[in-house]
Design a protein around this nucleic acid. Structure first.
Lengths: 260, 260
DNA sequence: CGCACGATTGATTAGGGTCAATAATGGTGG
DNA sequence: CCACCATTATTGACCCTAATCAATCGTGCG
């Protein structure tokens, strides 16, 4: 099921039924990873593109002395490392956080996809550029924001990303991550993550029951963390490419769009 | 003068005389920016590719309350934002640190370049992937390392990057950056940057006269900062594409390579 | 039911921040 | 060549955020 991927890419541009069909086919077989299992390890030779179909994973780097840094979270629809084949070996690892289903797209299949479907290719580029922008924003987050702002900012980002793939309802979403993992991602200790989350709850910016995060007032949370969503580039920037649009290359019969 | 760019790309693969010729032509006209002048501002519509020919620049983001985060340094040979055209607006700014000469490559010219010169295209991809890897490493640096390690790590990286484009001699290089800028890049205050640099000097890991950085023992500095150079992907990973190589597509007459 | 793992709490410490003043530097015009 | 000014670098005193260490409490699950 490539639903998340399709939803994600449609944040950039509208895809045709054929585009969706192709994406669905190419992500057909999902491989399952257990929590804490590595999808890819540092030092591996990149051999395929991974698309998260369900569950959460993360990119991380381990320092020699054991410190671990989570450099990014990967949620359903996220696609990693197009063009990575150019590199000889991975400089970081990808690890499953929850039970994860991953579509592994071989290099050849991916190259064929991008060769034949320019609208998808553009959308994949958009996804890659957003990923880079997120990485930059994490740099800002770690370098400039206080623990309180930093946690709030991360939660804003995750909420919006999940919303983009349809994984929120009302003001809530699932954040299936331990506080220790949040610590490795925010550069805080698990103890301080705990206290910071309590602070955020105390002022009513968030609510947590189990792994369910509720954000009663997203605007307020964004303001508290100096969150500017521009780096997620969510405003359908590729709408000029929309399938069936006058400027696009229509490849479907109007009315035959596949349901989402 | 595209010397730095060519040297940089040749860390990945050997280019043919024609490749070099094309790169030299496309980066011909250099535009000059004064220190502190912005090459590109947040909110701008991306309209061209920039290649740093000489001088230093940085990527930065400014928070609403004035805090500034430098998310990366750009040195001669660095090329920014291929494929950025897909996005509607910049989510960060590029600013000159020193006097900077920049080649501004229009979109069309860039696309023609990548269309016709696959070896260059691959090399540019390599450069982009390295840039992403650097951004990830900065995340690690800010999240996990102490001030001492962090500064040491940054200096290792800058030294190696400059070395890659021929801007080191002996154990020294120019780092034309103020301590305030180092502060914005490391997430420290200028005061603490100053103290940290003093600490690094005190233990003999670095020497500084003016803007000249000397690293008497790079191995030692790398060890002190848990620096693993693998993320820079410097081991000529695209050597199978080398011009004149049996696997490559020879496009020059042997012996007619342009001098570096 | 008991066992892990994750969350929470408390007490204490330390790494960096803040504020404020002073000393170098370097570029400029005369 | 020098005086002047604006940056930039350096130092000191003090403070505060977040780390550390060490229990204890919950809770999901076999």
């Amino acid at each position: 099921m490539a639903i998340a991927l399709i939803r994600k890419l449609e944040q950039f541009t509208r895809l045709s039924a054929e585009d969706k069909q192709v994406l669905t086919e190419i992500t057909g077989r999902g491989r399952v990873f257990q929590p804490r299992e590595d999808l890819v390890q540092e030092g591996d030779k990149p051999s395929q593109i991974n698309v998260i179909l369900s569950g959460w994973a993360c990119r991380y780097k381990q320092l020699e002395d054991g410190r671990r840094s989570i450099t990014g979270f990967m949620v359903p629809g996220d696609l990693c490392d197009q063009n990575i084949f150019i590199l000889r070996q991975m400089d970081h690892s990808l690890g499953a956080i929850t039970l994860v289903t991953v579509a592994e797209i071989p290099r050849a299949a991916f190259e064929e996809l991008t060769l034949k479907h320019s609208r998808i290719t553009q959308a994949l580029w958009w996804a890659t550029l957003v990923e880079i922008a997120i990485q930059r924003e994490w740099t800002v987050n770690l370098g400039q924001r206080s623990a309180f702002e930093r946690m709030a900012h991360l939660l804003c980002e995750l909420y919006l990303r999940l919303q983009g793939v349809g994984l929120t309802r009302e003001n809530s979403c699932e954040i299936p991550v331990t506080q220790a993992e949040l610590a490795d991602a925010t550069g805080l200790t698990a103890v301080h993550v705990n206290r910071t989350l309590q602070d955020l709850r105390a002022v009513g910016l968030i609510a947590l029951k189990g792994k369910t995060l509720t954000i009663p007032n997203l605007e307020a949370l964004m303001q508290a963390s100096l969150f500017n969503p521009n780096y997620l580039h969510l405003d359908r920037e590729g709408r000029h490419l929309n399938a069936n649009d006058i400027n696009g290359v229509p490849s479907t019969i109007p009315g035959r769009e596949a349901p989402l």
